[in-house]
Every structure is written in structure tokens, then in C-alpha cells.
Design a binder for these strands. Structure first.
Lengths: 152, 152
DNA sequence: TATTGTTATACTCTATAACTATA
DNA sequence: TATAGTTATAGAGTATAACAATA
């Protein structure tokens, strides 16, 4: 058994049910807190998530965006329309299959992503400053694991 | 951006900006994934959060619930009304200060909490089963720290 | 007057159903 | 016929402003 800190209690590591509850509550709570920090912006989470997806994974069709964000096509259509009206994304009909529409980030959209990330992280960076190096190391390691869990 | 994986060096723990971004993204992603598991239910996150608060912290006035969930009083009033209509909470005028209303969980509400938690955690428990003891220990430790961060 | 809760109103996000255009 | 996207419509969640009851 690989021990990472001074006194891990083995029995607790087998209480996966309790740990899952703790992790679920902590995740929801932190997500809510982080989300609240967007108060300075006018952009919703859903809109920002689309811009972030376009930033990370390039252009998408409407259907691809809807699948990625796990919303229906009409919901995504509405979100994309709002982003288009704001000048943050462009719609371009696909050359091969003219039923499809390619949604791409505009330079203005890219700038908004950068600025929003900066603002959102500011609060978290300040909060993390009050924790210990060990605690921050734990969070960094956990973040990588959480991503793997979410990708399941 | 693969930074702190198996052997974090002290210098890296000072890259708080990058770590904050990682943690923010991982938290949002896991929260979204967990939230999607509620598909079997008809209850929204907001309604469930109220039932969970009543379960964990006992009865509240409307204002206390609004403060705890960080929404306005009219928003909480609406949520509580829906829960009351569904039979999951009760409203009782306060004996001492008759402006106040005590909101309490009904037995039906308590049953809904239990069942919802069970369903939500089922997915997470299964997911966690595919990780190592070390990884689960890291997540357990991180959950506690995340709660502290969120309470800031 | 101040506080607690509620009602009125409006806007966003989401969904299902129906429709259009294209394959 | 099937698929990609859009439009129509409705319900839930949130907010601000205005109101009622009580302290």
C-alpha cells in the first residue's frame, strides 16, 4: 500500500460511497462558487462554454456543438445565434453538404475567451494563495484525476 | 499543459495561475458530468439543493435558504413554492416573529433526497472503482480542500 | 422605519414538436 | 426517407421593483 501522507486511514479509502458523496458535494459547491464569479461578465456559462469549445477544438457544426455540450440542437441554435449577434462567432454554410453550417470563433470571440478566463481565474488564484503548498499540490493532482473521471 | 503529474517539484506549485485554470476546468467538467446523471429525475439542481440543505442543516426561514443558496428571496420563494406544491417541504408561520416562515422537509422530501443522492452517486462510485487507491485518496483529500475554497 | 416574505413582470436557458432545405 | 438546421411554443430559474404584513 503506497502511503502518500502521514496518516491515511486505510478503512476510509475503501469507503468509496462516502468519498463519492463528498466529492460530488465539493464539486458542485466549488463549481457554483466559481460560476458566481462571472457576475462581472454579461455572458452566460452556456455561451462561454461554446466559445471555449471552439477555442480548444476548432470549428464545429451546430450538431457537433450540441453533442459536445450535451444540449439539444434548438438550444444550441439559440446560443449560437446570440453569440453570432454579439459578433463572437460566425456561421458559414458547408461547401460539400449544404445542410450543414460551420460555426467558427471570430477574433472578437477569441478575445472574450481570454478575458473571461482571466477574470474567472483571478478569484480562484487569490483563494488558492491562502492554502499551503501541500494543499495546492493535492488540488493540482486531483484536477487531473477529475478530468479523467469526467471523460468516462 | 501537462505539468504536475507524478512528481510535483516545489517550483511548480508556485504556478498558481496554471493550476487555477486546470482546477476550474476540471471542476466545471466534472460538475457538468455529475449533473447530467440527474436525467432520470425530474427535479432541478436548484430544487434539489434546497432539499439537501434542509436535510443537512435542518429547517430554515426563507431568507436563510436564499442566503445559503445565494439567490434572491423571490427566486427562493418560487423554488420553495414548487417544492411545497410537490409535497416535499412544508411552510409554517413562525410563532415568535410572524413575518417569518419556517420551511421544513416532509417525509416525502426526505425520501426524495435519499433516492436522488443514491442515483447520482451510483455513477460516480462506479467511475471511481476504475481508479487506483492513491488516486481515490487524492480525490478524497482534494474534496475537503475544495469545500474550504468554496466556503471562502 | 426596517425587516420578512410575497407578487408582478421580464429575460435567459432549456426542451419538445413542427417545419424547411438538402442529401 | 433521413438528416441538419431552424422556428414556434412552453416551462423553469433568475432578477429587480413594488407591495403587504409584522416588528
Amino acid at each position: 500500500m503506497n502511503r502518500v501522507d502521514e496518516s491515511p486511514r486505510p478503512s476510509e479509502t475503501h469507503d468509496i460511497d462516502g468519498m463519492a458523496s463528498d466529492l460530488r458535494m465539493a464539486t458542485f459547491r466549488l463549481a457554483r462558487r466559481l460560476r458566481a464569479q462571472r457576475a462581472v461578465d454579461t455572458m452566460s456559462d452556456g455561451q462561454f462554454a461554446v466559445l471555449a469549445a471552439l477555442t480548444m477544438h476548432g470549428s464545429h457544426t451546430l450538431g457537433q456543438l450540441a453533442d459536445r455540450e450535451r444540449v439539444t440542437a434548438p438550444s444550441m441554435n439559440r446560443t449560437v445565434s446570440l453569440l453570432e449577434d454579439a459578433g463572437y462567432v460566425s456561421r458559414t454554410p458547408d461547401g460539400d453538404d449544404r445542410r450543414k453550417v460551420t460555426i467558427a470563433l471570430t477574433p472578437e470571440g477569441a478575445a472574450v475567451v481570454e478575458e473571461t478566463v482571466r477574470r474567472r481565474d483571478a478569484w480562484l488564484v487569490e483563494a488558492l494563495g491562502e492554502f499551503t503548498d501541500d494543499e495546492r499540490r493535492t488540488l493540482a493532482a486531483a484536477a487531473a484525476i477529475m478530468r479523467k473521471v469526467a471523460e468516462r
